[in-house]
Design a binder for these strands. Structure first.
Lengths: 205, 205
DNA sequence: GTGTAGCGAGACACCATGTCTCGCTATGAT
DNA sequence: ATCATAGCGAGACATGGTGTCTCGCTACAC
């Protein structure tokens, strides 16, 4: 797939001004309008009812302009939400490892069940299961592992047997995520606490 | 939503012959044809390219006939795959708990990455994230917890601190599932073994 | 035998997609 | 200051899927 931001300037044959994507200064207004419209629509009508046509109209922008910079609803959504999503999953350090882990799991649950960027991420993960293009986008972000890494790096000091991050991040977040994706209710707080206790025991106190 | 198999017989006012869904003996041929067509299409073209129109044509059936018995692509797919899916996730008892758990996780990985019913289940879980009707179907099946329960009940005997099934099933399968849904590669066998070791340690040997 | 209900076929209106063609306008080069 | 250019808003267009509908047809129930 052609990378976003490069599609409208394919005809640029001028090798001068290296790195300065020429031909785009005027697009900035439209770009922001589109991203803002997606943010709004996500809250107003949800991902399912969000439409390329609807985005263009809400942004007061031509449909072609949308397609010029993004190929897919998913692509716009990811760009509109990823930064917010990452921020919501940063938890301040706690004194004890248990508190640290629990805070992360609570934030993760909140994120995936109520926050607009979190619901958007769920929708993207969903689409990724049957759309290869979206799958690449979602895999590229790897939101879960990256967000867990911060907490895990702190906890690792007091958990000598913690496995490599690839596994420990999955062990930490996987149960919570899977429950939210496949069952009616997320793991309730008491079970989150029990899960944290399990992990710390498995990881050597 | 109206339950499947009841839509065409709403006008049946005859209270006799209790439990004998009258008006449906002739549908059996069409029903089987549709389910078989979905099985085929799932392998041939995949879930994304599967279409109500295509299903009807492949089954040699009128489109109205499909809509009479199912409301949704997801509904047909679930009916066509759920039995097979459940069977694929049954693992024969092993001598040691570690072997039991590892066999389940291996079967689960295989199921979700290569088996047609497994890929169908992933697609359904995906749709469930932005379609409430599909969500209800997927939640109703609760394939993961149910399939894990069998193994967990065996392992529980030698794992005194194992939490209730709601949590332990999530702890067992969650990391594997989440990795498959959100990253390019599933957890490789060595990490599955490490995960099993973690679980047994957390659950009290 | 006669009525009825599911059946295959396909017409239909609706809607989203992605491409295209219009003028318009702001920009950067001259 | 002028002019070519390229992104722009608007919307027409073909395509394809959806879900409803209307046809006769056929097999079963009474």
């Amino acid at each position: 797939m052609v990378s976003r931001y490069t599609r409208g300037v394919v005809l640029n044959t001028d090798p001068a001004a290296p790195g300065a994507r020429m031909g785009r200064p005027r697009s900035e207004r439209a770009r922001r309008a589109v991203l803002h419209a997606v943010d709004d629509l996500l809250v107003d009508v949800g991902y399912a009812a969000m439409t390329m046509k609807g985005i263009a109209e809400r942004a007061g922008v031509g449909r072609q302009t949308v397609y010029r910079w993004w190929s897919t609803k998913a692509e716009i959504l990811l760009e509109a939400c990823l930064t917010d999503a990452r921020e919501e999953l940063v938890v301040p350090p706690h004194a004890d490892p248990a508190g640290d882990l629990l805070a992360y799991l609570t934030a993760l649950t909140e994120f995936l069940t109520t926050s607009p960027p979190g619901l958007a991420y769920r929708a993207l993960v969903g689409e990724a299961q049957h759309d290869p293009a979206v799958r690449e986008l979602v895999h590229g972000a790897d939101l879960l592992t990256e967000s867990a890494r911060g907490v895990l790096d702190r906890v690792r000091r007091s958990a000598p047997d913690m496995p490599e991050t690839a596994l420990s991040a999955a062990q930490l977040a996987g149960p919570v995520v899977t429950r939210i994706l496949t069952t009616p209710a997320p793991l309730p707080e008491p079970l989150l606490e029990a899960h944290v206790a399990s992990l710390l025991r498995a990881w050597g106190r």
